[in-house]
Simulated scan of single mutants.
Amino acid sequence: MQANYRLWLNGNSLVLIDKAVRATRAEDLLNVQLSAFIAANNRHAVAVPEAAWHTEYLRIQGSFGCSLGTLQSCSLPQPGAAVIEPWEALQANLLAQLPSTLQAPVAECLDAFRAKPDEAVQQLLWAECVQPPDDGGYSQVHAELRLILPDSSIISTELSLNIAALLGPTWLWQALDSACVQAGRQVDVHYLTQDKLVDSIGAGLCNTLKVKRAQYRSAIRQFPDKELKHE
Rank of each mutant, 00 (worst) to 15 (best):
C180W: 02
L125W: 05
A115P: 01
D134N: 13
D188H: 09
V21G: 09
L124D: 04
Q103C: 00
A164Q: 14
G184H: 00
E56Q: 08
E50F: 13
D199R: 15
S63L: 15
D177R: 04
T193N: 06
A82T: 01
G136C: 05
S139N: 13
L102T: 00
V21E: 10
S35P: 06
R213Y: 13
L205C: 10
L176S: 01
L228W: 15
S13L: 04
I84P: 00
S153W: 03
I148R: 05
N41L: 11
C109P: 03
N41G: 11
G204S: 15
Y191D: 01
S156A: 15
V189A: 11
L29S: 06
Y191L: 07
Q123G: 09
N93P: 03
T70D: 08
G168S: 15
T157E: 10
A214M: 10
Q103N: 00
R114M: 03
A120H: 11
N4I: 03
C74H: 14
Q91L: 05
E158F: 11
I84S: 00
A20C: 08
L205D: 11
A115I: 05
T70K: 13
S156H: 06
L110I: 01
R114K: 05
L161K: 04
S13H: 08
Q174A: 12
W87A: 00
Q103L: 00
A39S: 06
Q182Y: 02
Y191G: 00
L145N: 04
N41D: 14
L16H: 03
V181F: 04
L58T: 03
N4C: 09
Q194W: 06
S63Q: 15
H44D: 04
A219P: 07
A183K: 01
D28P: 08
D28C: 11
E85K: 00
V15G: 06
E231L: 15
K226H: 14
T157D: 10
L71A: 07
I148D: 07
W126K: 02
A36W: 07
Q222N: 15
G11Q: 03
G80E: 11
H44I: 04
P150I: 10
A20P: 05
Q194E: 11
I163L: 08
A179S: 04
A183P: 00
C109N: 09
D28A: 13
Q123S: 10
S153P: 01
L205Q: 09
N31M: 11
A45C: 05
L94I: 01
Q61Y: 15
W173E: 12
R6T: 11
